[in-house]
Amino acid sequence: MERIKRAFSDGNVIAQRNVIRIKRVPEVLVFVLISPIMFVLLFAYVFGSSIDVPGGSYREFLIGGIFAQTVIFGATFTGAGLAEDMQKGIINRFRSLPMSQSAVVFGRTASDVIYNVLSLIIMALTGLVVGWRIHDGIVSALLGFGLLLLFAYALSWVMALVGLSVPSVEVINNASFMVIFPLTFIANTFVPSDNLPTPLRVFAEWNPVSAVTQAARELFGNIPAGTPEPTVWSLQNPIAYTLIWVVIILIVFVPLSVRKYQRVAAKT
């Protein structure tokens, strides 16, 4: 019990430190807030003008996908932050202190949620400006935002492991790009997946990114009236399928990341 209390209080100290850093390096925050605006506007006006979704508005369809992609990119901050801490030697300082061994990674993943909360708020406001609406009530919409954040939180533990394993911040930025782009594009994020070639369609149907996007659309009431029912379980039960992924990712990557933290080689 004492141990858990300690871990919580140490994690809190680390999270507070990260929050101070967010305030001190406003450039990062500006990027975090501007790029989602850019994405919403680009997709809404560039693709939105030439793509039709039967029975509904492409812009409304699109927003769920942009939300999903942006919060997933937000998870990479966790990896970049840990990689930077390692490069700067501050991880050595933490590891020489009698603090909880899981606090550095827990504190980091917790404070990085702030980025995603802020970018969701900004995106939602931009979305409202370009014509996106919530149709199923505010409670359901909040659940949608919560699910997006939870999914991104789980992914930030994957990025934590990557961040502790790479030699520098630059590597993680490039590496995550290469993984996240295919993962968020071979999905139903920006176009309906029904028309994809079979292998890609199957991948898209079982891709958790599709599920979390589908879940967000359902919770926001953004599924157009005439849309055919999904034929696979993952998209018929997108909330449950997303939660299963969240649990699996956390079960696997929380211990792996904490263990990695305890063993990161002292870098000089």
């Binding site: 209080s9 001190r24 700067k88 050595n92 020489s96 009698p98």
Partner: peptide, 26 residues
């Protein structure tokens, strides 16, 4: 431990760095 490469957080103030370390010593 004081390392060869100063392991302090450069975005925090001197005070915030020391206070953080104190908190982590509980």
């Amino acid at each position: 431990l004081s390392g060869q490469y100063a392991a302090v957080d450069e975005h925090l103030t001197g005070f915030e760095n020391l206070r953080m370390v104190g908190r982590l010593y509980h």
